[in-house]
């Protein structure tokens, strides 16, 4: 069983790693308007990550602030799900990742907003509005790519097939947590299925369910992501920025 620190850290790391990936799109998006939209979403995730990391640091009680937690831990100490650390791929992969992530974060933050922990409730209340926007944005694009051209349909279906197995980890039961992720699955399935149907896409049938992120056992990608993110901070121990 995990305590509130691990739970909060998991949410924080999801948001932080998602922000780091989304920000990679800056100056590279398919259209300039979309560059701005992706940065907005990255900023939302980063904002949530900072609040959650700060709170996690307080729960831990070891004097670590948001930066100590973000820049001072190795990949084995990160608690994010695998989905967010996977590379961006093409725009279809990024939209598939964002659809799945936001369809999970929205009911999660919504439930959190009503939980007994006041700090988590406040963070959930703020973040759920942002998640609703992320879900809206990704749904819009998944529909356009799924039901756009032959090429976009092929890419979008491939992206969904590639990302789908990573959703199972999101809903691993944790009855002691402020919100048990297992309870969020029906909501997630309903939302995602509706979007995929409208986008003329199918849900892949697979039994493969990679996991381990919540225990610090990640894909090979996370270590590279952190090496880049942490390089400057770690090169100047104790410096203020």
């Amino acid at each position: 069983m995990k305590g509130p620190f691990d739970f909060t850290l998991g949410l924080a790391d999801d948001a932080l790693v998602a922000a780091q990936r989304l920000a990679e799109w800056s100056t590279r998006a398919p259209e300039m308007e979309e560059d701005i939209a992706l940065s907005n979403i990255a900023l939302d995730q980063l904002g949530a990550a900072r609040l959650l990391l700060t709170y996690a640091g307080e729960l831990e009680g070891a004097g670590r602030d948001e930066d100590a937690l973000a820049f001072g831990r190795d990949d084995r100490e990160f608690r994010n799900c695998l989905l967010v650390e996977l590379p961006n791929g093409d725009f279809a992969v990024t939209m598939a990742k964002l659809l799945l992530l936001s369809a999970y974060q929205l009911p999660l933050y919504t439930a959190l907003a009503a939980c007994a922990d006041e700090r988590l409730a406040a963070i959930g209340g703020k973040a759920r509005k942002e998640s609703a926007y992320h879900l809206d944005h990704s749904s819009l694009w998944v529909k356009r790519l799924g039901d756009g051209t032959e090429e976009s349909h092929r890419r979008m279906q491939a992206a969904v097939d590639e990302m789908w197995p990573y959703t199972h980890e999101l809903f691993a039961a944790d009855p002691a947590a402020p919100v048990d992720p297992a309870t969020l699955r029906p909501d997630f399935d309903a939302v995602v299925s509706a979007v995929l149907d409208e986008a003329t896409l199918t849900r892949p049938e697979t039994t493969w369910a990679p996991a381990g992120g919540r225990d610090g056992v990640h894909t090979e990608h996370l270590s590279f992501l952190l090496a880049e993110m942490q390089v400057l901070h770690r090169a100047h121990p104790g410096a203020r920025w």
């Binding site: 900023l43 900072r50 930066d67 400057l232």
Partner: peptide
């Protein structure tokens, strides 16, 4: 952006 040395600086630079 990817290497900004604090989360606050990262947010400001991204914005």
């Amino acid at each position: 952006i990817s290497r900004a040395p604090s989360l606050k600086r990262k947010a400001i630079l991204l914005a």
